[in-house]
Nucleic acid binder design. Sequence first.
DNA 1: GACCAGGCACATC
DNA 2: GATGTGCATGGT
Length: 225
Amino acid sequence: MTTTEKIQAFYRAMFDALGPQGWWPAETPFEVVVGAILTQNTNWKNVERAIANLKREGLLDAASLETIDIERLGEVIRPAGYFRLKAKRLKNFIHMLTEEFGGDLDALFALSTATLRQTVLGVTGIGPETADSIVLYAAARPVFVVDAYTARILYRHALVDSGATYDDLQSLMAGALPDDVDLLKEYHALLVAAGKRYCKKRMAECAGCPLEGLLEDGQPVWEVV
DNA sequence: GACCAGGCACATC
DNA sequence: GATGTGCATGGT
């Protein structure tokens, strides 16, 4: 089995076992952007609380976030953790959006995919995973979103070594998959769903994982990652 | 009480 | 270029 075949087999196995995940869980592209920043290294449940607070306070739009006091914003998003840091990061994104695109997400999303990704990446506090989440799930452009579960699952199945970078992982996945927005949305969501259930950080047993026994060559690696 | 969660920037060597 | 550390809440 080639690496490409393995990556495609992983998708089928996860989809058959777990079904469509319906990501991103948000009502609007703007909410996707906010959620992408708030979920950095954070349980989604806590992000939901923070987003509910933003909605209740009528703050889930560019103009409101541009004008709100940063300390008050921090209090509103507090349940998401790292709240001072994330208040700053939200402000950084909104400043860029306001100054360069008149606060209009559609204007930002009119950029070419590569330029859009670079522009979003240029915001302090937005790294590769957050940028790609925005590009894929908010702007609906075909990029592969790499996250900790992607790295862990590919590493434990010996498709990459422990030194693989974000770009290494992204290239590997992109090279094996079509430029299909719906498929790429689903693949990332399935990796997270499978990772949460069967491949948590210190989990050494993975009984019941849909990826179990899929590879006929190469033993899975079981160092903790 | 330790460990973890859908990262990222920055300091230091 | 690699490695270490701060950031913070809420669930298990």
